[in-house]
Design a protein around this nucleic acid. Structure first.
Length: 479
RNA sequence: GGCGCCGUGGCCAAGUGGUAAGGCAGAGGACUGCAAAUCCUUUAUCCCCGGUUCGAAUCCGGGCGGCGCCUCCA
């Protein structure tokens, strides 16, 4: 089987066939750290994580880079209003992104470059573009990309630039460019820029980089002239990625990325998420409400990345339930008794089929819904098999455990859910003492006392399960 | 106006030519001291109309409905 991905460049499913499987370079557009990231941002980040994990699962050697944009109009304006430097203002938001990423089980990427650390590279890039006649300077010391000199402009978004509506939002042209469609590579320094320390020296004058430039510079610097994969939100197709292509290819003469993948925006409780209407949710709020990072991860992951996803608290509750089942299943598989002289079962075949179906779905443009379907079929079949067999061969159980583990290496659901059910030793001892007391009460048929203890534990979020092997307890994660 | 996506059971959702995965919720049953967990059973002909085909949720045309992007929002 082979991985096929929907390439925005070709608008079809293409075979993913990197030049060097040992060194696959992936660049993902990260957040602009001018405020707290919201769940919409995290749909993108969880998607990036899925790509990251799946490529490694498929055996590729991956270098994965996600930038943090810490210099642009919004960060400068906000820092200025707060009377802080750019660095002071953006640092907390950058930290929050990583902290909340951790909570959602997003594995750390190889590098999180900050735009401000790559301004030298950006200046080099602009120089090259000026030398090549693809850019021009204006009287105030700004530099613009000359769209008309790059025939491929529009190839990613499929836009016919001649037909683009002009003049609608262009009134805010503060730098005096030749053509409204030309975009800024370099913006001449203004007082606010100086106030927050967002000013760099360039041969054509002091200023700061334009929006698209950072990604070209960091991608070229950290991965190379041609990326294997470039990821981003659907809104970035135009103009951001179009600009990146123009800048990078204009400078190197080589294709900037073989594959472009774009994740669709999510909606919240039925409507578009937008900061202007206050209709956006932060991950931190959800965690404070008692939803777990794993449940949030599940909901963001459960729908394929190019499909509509309506993020709701009801959906989150459903995700929490599904996750609970997955965790229970993992427990059960771990704890199931082993026997020496027990008959063979179909467990290994079920495991092989689950793995195969999982991979087939994921290979088809990362179809997580289909992949989860395979997981739950496996879960149901194996639960039934465990019901029928009190003891199983060690090697069969191991085969099943390996497959579940392997699948979760990609999905990261059990992994994230586990991490959140941590209980310290003191609490553990206290719980186990109460469970033992209840066992004694049950042995003497003192149901009232037994139920009292169970209710007591339930109020602490501990659920009991009486089985033939004794009583087990677990923490019921929120959600 | 330009480009594009989507419409499957109560909710979410897979399936892109051969008679509908899976999750959540609901109902009945088994198990249990009662529960919990688990298992079994149970709920759809795929927005509408027309066409292509031996056969369509799946292809084509039309209609209705929802949504996204179109200069700095992942």
């Amino acid at each position: 089987m082979a991985l096929h991905l929907f390439n925005t460049l070709t608008r079809q499913l293409d075979l993913f066939d990197p030049a060097d499987p040992e060194r696959v370079g992936v660049y993902a557009c990260g957040p602009t750290v001018y405020g707290h990231a919201h769940v919409g941002n995290f749909r993108a980040f969880v998607f990036y994580d899925l790509v990251h994990r799946y490529l490694e699962w498929k055996g590729y050697g991956v270098r994965f880079v996600m930038n943090l944009t810490d210099v642009d109009d919004k960060t400068i304006r906000a820092a200025f209003e707060q009377g802080q430097t750019l660095e002071e203002y953006t640092a907390p938001f950058a930290e929050a992104v990583l902290r909340e990423s951790d909570a959602l089980g997003i594995r750390r990427m190889d590098l999180y470059p900050r735009a401000t650390a790559y301004v030298d590279r950006m200046i080099e890039l602009v120089s090259t573009l000026l030398d090549r006649g693809l850019a021009y300077r204006t009287s105030d010391g700004s530099v613009f990309y000359d769209i008309s000199a790059f025939p491929n402009y529009g190839c990613l978004s499929g836009k016919d630039l001649d037909q683009a509506r002009t003049g609608e939002r262009v009134a805010a042209d503060e730098y005096g460019k030749d053509d409204v469609r030309d975009f800024a590579l370099w913006k001449a320094a203004k007082p606010e820029d100086r106030a927050v320390g967002a000013v760099w020296d360039a041969p054509w004058g002091e200023g700061r980089p334009g929006w698209h430039l950072e990604c070209s510079a960091m991608g070229l610097a950290e991965i190379g002239d041609t990326l294997d994969l470039h990821l981003g939100g659907e809104d970035l197709i135009f103009p951001h990625h179009e600009g990146e292509i123009a800048q990078s290819e204009g400078a190197t003469g080589k294709p900037f990325a073989r594959f472009w993948l774009h994740v669709k925006h999510l909606r919240v409780e039925g409507s578009k998420m937008s900061k202007s209407t206050g209709n956006f949710i932060r991950v931190k709020e959800l965690l404070d409400e008692g939803f777990t990072g794993a449940a949030i991860r599940h909901q963001l992951l459960s729908v394929q990345y190019r499909s509509d996803l309506n993020f709701t608290r009801d959906g989150l509750a459903a995700s929490a339930r599904a996750l609970r089942r997955l965790l229970d299943f993992d427990d059960r598989l771990r704890d199931h008794p082993v026997g020496e002289d027990v008959p063979e079962t179909a467990l290994p075949q079920l495991a092989r089929r689950a793995s195969r179906d999982f991979e087939a779905a994921m290979d088809q443009d990362l179809n997580v819904s289909g992949a989860l379907g395979a997981v739950f079929v496996f879960l149901k079949e194996v639960n039934a098999l465990l019901d029928r067999n009190e003891r199983l061969r060690m090697e069969e159980l191991d085969a099943a455990r390996r497959v579940l583990q392997s699948i979760d290496d990609v999905l990261g659901l059990i992994e994230t859910g586990r991490r959140e059910s941590g209980i310290d030793e003191e609490e553990r001892a206290s719980i186990e003492a109460m469970v033992a007391e209840r066992e004694a009460a049950r042995a003497s048929r003192d149901w009232a006392r037994a139920d009292e203890i169970r209710d007591d534990l339930a109020s602490r979020g501990i659920v009991l399960e009486d089985g033939p092997e004794g009583t087990r307890w677990k923490r019921l994660a929120g959600g």
